[in-house]
């Protein structure tokens, strides 16, 4: 009995010992910055001098800033485009791809994976969009169409930022992996019932993908609401403020205007906006296969 207890104790100690480094990392690099942000958000924060408590003044400043509305509008617009093009489209492309031979699927997965080194991909896209030297305008001119301004056109710029995500097919790879785990018997049963391709998609494929879609949707929402590197590298937030996103504005406030208090207050607002969206998504989009 004693030996069994000490065995359990040993196992528990070992479990804590193995988990402790990860938990500590999660605390110091994950939770602690979030907690600290709530402290900084209510301070006039200096890098050298002692911070001053300013109550809700940073939040008031965020609320009174006309750019706050602009950057949230831009971010939501980007999220809609991004989720529409790089989250929903790959679901259907993956489903269609599953109809092809195993060899083709493997090749396509490999080819999609190559450009996933996204920073390099972003830099290349910047040159593809170049109005004078870029490949895209070269093609348009080649087929007799007028050249476009791409990133220099405020109406097109945000779409231009989203398009590389469509080619860098990250979510598609995950859907294909999930689709390969759908039991063949389910499709066979559906075929015996007389289901065609579309009906199989509706009754078998999509329901089986639901947990993956739910998870990917959360990642997509969080990722797109926090987009930074794309506009930072490709447009610097311009033209005007057409592609300035919330996180980019937070960066500008913190490290170009040195207003860490206001930047953190805006980050807190973003945190609650994302939390609200996720809570609503979890409430209305059940991932359980049996619901």
């Amino acid at each position: 009995m004693a030996a069994a207890v000490s065995g359990i104790g040993y196992k528990r100690a070992a479990a804590w010992a193995f988990s402790a480094p990860a938990i500590l990392c999660q605390f110091f690099f994950g939770w602690f910055p979030v907690l600290f942000a709530f402290y900084v958000g209510f301070q006039r924060y200096y890098f050298v001098k002692q911070p001053e408590f300013v109550g809700l003044r940073n939040l008031q400043s965020v609320a009174a800033d006309p750019l706050t509305v602009t950057v949230f509008q831009n971010t939501i617009y980007y999220s809609i485009l991004s989720i529409g093009l790089t989250f929903i489209v790959p679901i259907f492309v993956s489903i269609l791809l599953m109809e092809m031979s195993r060899k083709t699927i493997r090749w396509m997965m490999l080819l999609w994976f190559i450009p996933v080194a996204s920073t390099a991909g972003i830099a290349i896209w910047k040159y593809l969009y170049n109005p004078q030297l870029g490949l895209l305008n070269g093609i348009l001119k080649g087929i007799g169409l007028p050249a476009l301004k791409w990133l220099d056109d405020p109406a097109l710029a945000m779409l231009c930022l989203v398009l590389p995500g469509l080619i860098l097919f990250g979510p598609g790879l995950i859907y294909i992996a999930a689709l390969q785990n759908v039991p063949e018997e389910l499709y066979e049963a559906a075929e015996l019932e007389g289901a065609g391709f579309l009906r199989k998609v509706r009754t078998v494929t999509l329901p089986r993908l639901r947990p993956v879609i739910a998870m990917m949707l959360i990642f997509s929402i969080i990722g797109s609401m926090q987009v930074f590197e794309l506009p930072f590298i490709m447009t610097g937030g311009g033209p005007g403020y057409a592609t300035t996103t919330v996180v980019m504005y937070i960066y500008n406030l913190a490290f170009l205007s040195y207003d860490l208090g206001k930047a953190t207050a805006l980050a807190i607002v973003l945190f609650f906006v994302i939390m609200t969206i996720i809570v609503l998504q979890r409430k209305f989009f059940r991932e359980d296969l049996d619901t």
Partner: peptide, 20 residues
Amino acid sequence: PGKRDMDRAMIAMYAEAITT
């Protein structure tokens, strides 16, 4: 005001004048 902050706002204004 901070020079860089004002510059950023002015650059945005000129960019908008040029691109729209």
